[in-house]
C-alpha cells in the first residue's frame, strides 16, 4: 500500500518534469502547425479580416509560374548541392582517418565556415562573385580573362549558390563521417585484410555497410536542410535573376512578409512540409528494409 503511493508520487513527479515541454511543443509546434493548415484556406493580408477561400490558394500556387519555378529549383538545388557535398565530405573523411602531421589543424580549418553565420558568408561571397571580384580574378588565367557573370546569369547564379552551400557545410558532415569511420572496429579491417581483400573491396564490403547509419544520418539531415534553404537565396541573389534561383523557402518569406499574402505563404509552406514528410518516410522505409 505504501509502496503504491510512493510509486504514484514518483510518476507524478515524472509527469511534472515533462509537463513544461509537453505544453511548450503544443503551443509552439502543434498549434502553429494546425494554424498554418487553417490559414492556407484563407485570404489574409494581416490587416483586413481573413476571408475563407477554400482551396483557392492551392489552385492558385500550382498555376503560378513563380511557384512552379521555385519548386523545380528547390529540387535542383538540393540535388546539385547534396550529392557532390556527400562525395567531398566522405572522401575528405577517409583522408582524415589516415595518420599524418597536422591532422588536427586541417580538421579545425575545414570546420571554420560552420561557425560563421550564413549571413556573413552570404555578404562576403556576394562580393567574391562580383564581375571584377576575387572569384573571377583567381580563375582568370583559366578562362582567358573572360568575365563570368556569376550573379547576373541564371545558370551561373545557380552554380554560385551551390558552391557557397557546399563550401560552408562540407566540414561539418566530414566530422560526422570521421566519427562514424572511427567507430568501425579495427578487427573488421584486419579480418578483411587476412582474407586478401584489396582496398576497393575493403571499402565496399567493410566500410560502406558499417558506415550506413552515419550515412543515413548525413543524408537525412543534409536533405532536410537543403529543402529549407533561404539565407543564400535571400542575401546573395534575392532569388534572381528573374527567379532563376528562387526556392520555396524564400518564396514563403516573400509571399508572407513582402506581399503580405499570408494564406498563400501558408499553402506553399504546407507543400514544403508534404515534401519533407514524404522524404523522411521514404528514407525510414529504406533503412528498415536494409536492416531486416
Amino acid at each position: 500500500m505504501i509502496k503504491m503511493t510512493i510509486y504514484r508520487k514518483r510518476s507524478l513527479w515524472g509527469f511534472l518534469f515533462a509537463l513544461p515541454a509537453i505544453l511548450f511543443f503544443i503551443l509552439f509546434a502543434y498549434y502553429p502547425m494546425i494554424s498554418a493548415a487553417r490559414l492556407s484556406l484563407y485570404d489574409w493580408n494581416l490587416v483586413s479580416p481573413p476571408q475563407f477561400v477554400g482551396l483557392d490558394n492551392y489552385t492558385y500556387i500550382f498555376q503560378d509560374g513563380r511557384f512552379q519555378k521555385a519548386l523545380v529549383n528547390t529540387f535542383k538545388f538540393v540535388g546539385t548541392y547534396a550529392v557532390p557535398m556527400w562525395i567531398v565530405a566522405l572522401s575528405m573523411a577517409l583522408l582524415f582517418t589516415q595518420d599524418f602531421r597536422g591532422r588536427g589543424l586541417f580538421r579545425t580549418l575545414y570546420f571554420v565556415p560552420i561557425i560563421l553565420s550564413e549571413t556573413v558568408i552570404s555578404i562576403v561571397w556576394r562580393l567574391l562573385f562580383h564581375p571584377q571580384g576575387a572569384v573571377n580574378a583567381i580563375i582568370s588565367p583559366f578562362t582567358g580573362g573572360q568575365t563570368i557573370p556569376w550573379l547576373t546569369d541564371g545558370n551561373y547564379a545557380f552554380i554560385a549558390l551551390v558552391i557557397v552551400a557546399i563550401w560552408r557545410v562540407f566540414g561539418y558532415y566530414m566530422i560526422i563521417f570521421i566519427s562514424g569511420l572511427q567507430n568501425i572496429p579495427q578487427e573488421y579491417y584486419d579480418a578483411a585484410r587476412v582474407d586478401g581483400g584489396n582496398r576497393i573491396q575493403v571499402f565496399r564490403f567493410v566500410t560502406m555497410p558499417l558506415l550506413l547509419p552515419t550515412t543515413v544520418f548525413v543524408v537525412i539531415i543534409s536533405l532536410l536542410n537543403g529543402f529549407q534553404a533561404f539565407v543564400y537565396q535571400y542575401l546573395i541573389t534575392r532569388g534572381g535573376p528573374n527567379d532563376s534561383t528562387n526556392v520555396l523557402g524564400y518564396l514563403i518569406y516573400q509571399e508572407a512578409f513582402t506581399n503580405l499574402n499570408m494564406g498563400r505563404a501558408a499553402a506553399i509552406s504546407l507543400v514544403l512540409f508534404a515534401i519533407l514528410v514524404t522524404l523522411t518516410f521514404i528514407q525510414l522505409y529504406l533503412i528498415r528494409r536494409r536492416e531486416v
Binding site: 511543443f25 509552439f28 509546434a29 502543434y30 498549434y31 502553429p32 502547425m33 494554424s35 498554418a36 490559414l39 494581416l46 532536410l224 529543402f227 529549407q228 533561404f230 520555396l248 523557402g249 514563403i252 518569406y253 508572407a256 499570408m262 505563404a265 501558408a266 509552406s269 504546407l270 514544403l272 512540409f273 519533407l276 514528410v277 523522411t280
Partner: peptide, 16 residues
C-alpha cells in the same frame, strides 16, 4: 516535431 520545418510555422508563430 523534428519533422516540422521552421518555414511552416513561421507565419502562424509570427501572428501568435
Amino acid at each position: 516535431t523534428l519533422m516540422i520545418p521552421f518555414h511552416v510555422v513561421v507565419v502562424p508563430l509570427f501572428t501568435l
